[in-house]
Design a protein around this nucleic acid. Structure first.
Length: 500
RNA sequence: GGCGCAUUCGUCUAGCGGUCUAGGACACCGCCCUCUCAAGGCGGAGAUCACGGGUUCAAAUCCCGUAUGCGCUACCA
C-alpha cells in the first residue's frame, strides 16, 4: 500500500483513451478522453490512444480515422498511439495478439485460468434454464473441474476452446476506486469470464489489463459501466503479480430522456456539432464541465486555464444529462469572443457550402468577398449562436431579389398609402445624402418620422422590411450602410412598387 | 431475478458537520436599454437537499434501511 503511493508521486502519470472502433463515438465518449487528456497535460504526463479492436465482427471500417479526426477537432493530441507510434506499441490490440496468448497460457500454467470446451449452444441452453428457474445466469464452471483424461479426450476430439479466468470461489474482491472509494464484491457472485476467445483474440478483460500494465498506465479513466467487471480485472492483475493502476469510474452522460447516450437518441457526434457550427473550443469547455466543476461560479475556461486547474478529485460521481441549450449558449459566448477577422474566416465555409447543406442560396456566387462578409458579420456577431445558422440570418445581404409578404411592410396604424408615402420620402432623403454611413443616415430619418407624425418604430420598421425582407435585422442604419446606397434605393423602389 | 453505482432548483452544478432562512449557470418570466432582434444590466420564480430512521449540542454533509433511476449480468466493449 505504501509502495503504491510512493510509485504515484514519483512516476509521471500515463493515461489512455481506449475506444473500440465499433461505431461512431458519441460526444460522451470524448468527454472521457478529455478528462484523461486534461489530467495528462495538467500533470506533465502522457496521453495515449489505444485501439481496442479485438472484436473483429463489430469493427467498423473507417471508425479509427473518424475517431482520430474527432480528437484532433477537439484539440486532444496524443503522445503515443496509431500513426504517431511510441515506445509501447503497437497500439492496436489486434496487433498484440501473441502477447495476450502468451499471458493466457501463463495463467493456465499457474492455475488461474483454464480451457473451456463448452459450445455456444450449451452455454445458451444453460442460460435459458437458469433464467427459467429465476437463477442468475452464470457459467457453471463445468470445464474448470475436468479431469486430465477428460481434458485430453476433448482435446483429441478437436473441440475448439476458450480460456476462462478461474475466479476464487470464496472470499471478496475489493475494487478501490478513487472516486467511489472501496467497492466490495463477493467472489461467489462473479463467474469465470472468458478471457481468450476461440478465435484466439482476447476479450476486453484480458487485453485491457495486459496493455494497461505493459504500457505503464497509472490512471484508468473509463465509464462506470465497467465497475461491474472491475473485480475481475483486479483478480487478473493479482494473478499476474501486477499492481493495478488507479481506477476512476466516470458517471455516464445521459440524454434528455435520462437514458445513456447513444447515437440514435440525442447524442451528437463531433461532426454533427461541427456541421451545425459549434466551435470546438466551446465544445471542449462544455464537455469539461460535464461531471466536473472547478468552483461554484466559473464556467468559461480557456484551454490553458482548464489544463492549469483540472484535477481528478473534482470529478463528480452522479451522472448528468447533456443540456443542448447550455452548449448553444456557451457557443454564443465563444463566438462573441472571436476577433472579427477570425470569425469571418471560420464562418465563410459555412456560408459557401451548398444551400442544401445550410449555405447561402446557390444563386449567390462563390467565393464570397471577404471584406464584405466581414462587415456583414460584424453586425451579426452578437446575434450568432452557431456558425451554421449564419447563412439564413444574413442571406438578404447577398441575394438580388427579396421574397417577402408585402403585408409585412405595413406597420401598425398604417396602411399601404401612408407606407408608400413614407418610403418615397425616405428615398428622396437618401438620394440627396452626401455621406453614406450609418451616423449620417440616422438623423434625417428620425426627422422624417417626426415630420410625418410617425413613431420611429413605424418608419424604421417599414424600411427594415423593405431593405431586408424581414422584421428582424441588425440595427437599421448599419445594415443600410453595409448594404450600400444603390442596393438600398433599389429595394426601396421595389417596396414602393409593391404598394402601388 | 442477482450484483453494483447513483440521488441538491426543469437541467448542469457549488457544498466535503456549524458560515445554508442552500450559492452560481442554462432555460423561463418581468423591468431597464432600444428602430426590430440580440447582447448587456437589474430583478423574479424555481430545491421541504428522494423518503424513513439513527449518530451528534448541531446533518444537504456521517451511518443504516426503503424507493427510484442507471449500469452490468455475452466467446461486445
Amino acid at each position: 500500500m505504501q509502495e503504491q503511493k510512493h510509485k504515484q508521486v514519483t512516476t509521471a502519470p500515463r493515461l489512455r483513451f481506449a475506444p473500440s472502433p465499433t461505431g461512431f463515438q458519441h460526444i460522451g465518449g470524448y468527454r472521457t478522453a478529455l478528462f484523461s487528456w486534461l489530467f495528462a497535460r495538467h500533470s506533465g504526463g502522457t496521453f495515449i490512444l489505444r485501439i481496442e479492436d479485438t472484436d473483429l465482427s463489430r469493427t467498423v471500417e473507417g471508425a479509427v480515422s473518424y475517431l482520430i479526426e474527432g480528437l484532433k477537432w477537439l484539440g486532444l493530441d496524443y503522445d503515443e498511439g496509431p500513426v504517431v507510434g511510441g515506445p509501447y506499441g503497437p497500439y492496436y490490440q489486434t496487433q498484440r495478439k501473441a502477447l495476450y496468448q502468451q499471458y493466457a497460457h501463463q495463467l493456465i500454467v499457474s492455475g488461474h485460468a483454464y480451457r473451456c470446451y463448452c459450445t455456444p449452444e450449451r452455454l445458451e441452453q444453460m442460460r435459458k434454464e437458469q433464467e427459467a428457474q429465476k437463477l442468475p445466469p452464470r457459467y457453471d464452471r463445468r470445464c474448470r473441474f475436468l479431469t486430465t483424461e477428460e481434458r485430453a479426450a476433448l482435446e483429441a476430439a478437436g473441440h475448439s476452446w476458450t480460456v476462462r479466468f478461474a475466479m476464487p470461489l470464496e472470499g471478496e474482491t475489493i475494487v478501490h476506486d478513487e472516486l467511489h472509494g472501496d467497492i466490495t464484491f463477493k467472489n461467489a457472485d462473479l463467474d469465470d469470464a472468458v478471457i481468450l476467445k476461440s478465435d484466439g483474440y482476447p476479450t476486453y478483460h484480458l487485453a485491457n489489463v495486459i496493455d494497461d500494465h505493459l504500457m505503464g498506465i497509472t490512471h484508468v479513466l473509463r465509464g462506470e459501466e465497467w465497475i461491474a467487471s472491475a473485480p475481475r480485472h483486479v483478480q487478473i492483475y493479482q494473478a499476474l503479480g501486477w499492481e493495478p493502476p488507479l481506477f476512476y469510474h466516470l458517471p455516464n452522460v445521459l440524454g434528455k430522456d435520462k437514458k445513456k447516450l447513444s447515437k440514435r437518441h440525442n447524442a451528437p457526434s463531433w461532426d454533427t456539432l461541427q456541421k451545425q457550427g459549434y466551435l470546438p473550443e466551446a465544445v471542449f469547455n462544455f464537455l469539461a464541465l460535464l461531471g466536473w466543476a472547478y468552483d461554484d461560479k466559473t464556467e468559461i475556461f480557456s484551454r490553458e486555464e482548464l489544463i492549469r486547474v483540472f484535477t481528478l478529485d473534482r470529478i463528480g460521481v452522479s451522472g448528468g444529462i447533456l443540456d443542448p441549450d447550455k452548449l448553444t449558449w456557451m457557443n454564443g459566448v465563444y463566438i462573441r469572443q472571436l476577433p472579427l477577422e477570425e470569425l469571418t474566416r471560420r464562418t465563410l465555409p459555412y456560408l459557401e457550402r451548398p444551400a442544401a447543406e445550410g449555405g447561402l442560396p446557390d444563386s449567390v456566387p462563390r467565393p464570397l468577398d471577404f471584406e464584405y462578409t466581414q462587415r456583414v458579420l460584424q453586425l451579426e456577431q452578437e446575434r450568432l449562436k452557431t456558425l451554421g445558422e449564419a447563412a439564413q440570418m444574413i442571406d438578404f445581404f447577398y441575394v438580388d431579389e427579396l421574397h417577402y409578404d408585402t403585408a409585412l411592410l405595413i406597420q401598425k396604424q398604417m396602411d399601404a398609402a401612408s407606407t408608400r408615402a413614407a418610403l418615397e420620402r425616405t428615398r428622396e432623403i437618401l438620394v440627396a445624402l452626401d455621406l453614406w454611413e450609418h451616423s449620417a443616415l440616422e438623423e434625417p430619418l428620425r426627422a422624417l418620422a417626426a415630420t410625418l407624425g410617425l413613431k420611429t418604430g413605424q418608419l424604421f420598421g417599414a424600411i427594415r422590411v423593405a431593405i431586408s425582407g424581414r422584421t428582424v435585422s441588425p440595427p437599421l442604419f448599419q445594415t443600410m450602410e453595409v448594404l450600400g446606397r444603390q442596393r438600398t434605393l433599389h429595394r426601396l423602389d421595389q417596396a414602393i412598387a409593391r404598394l402601388s
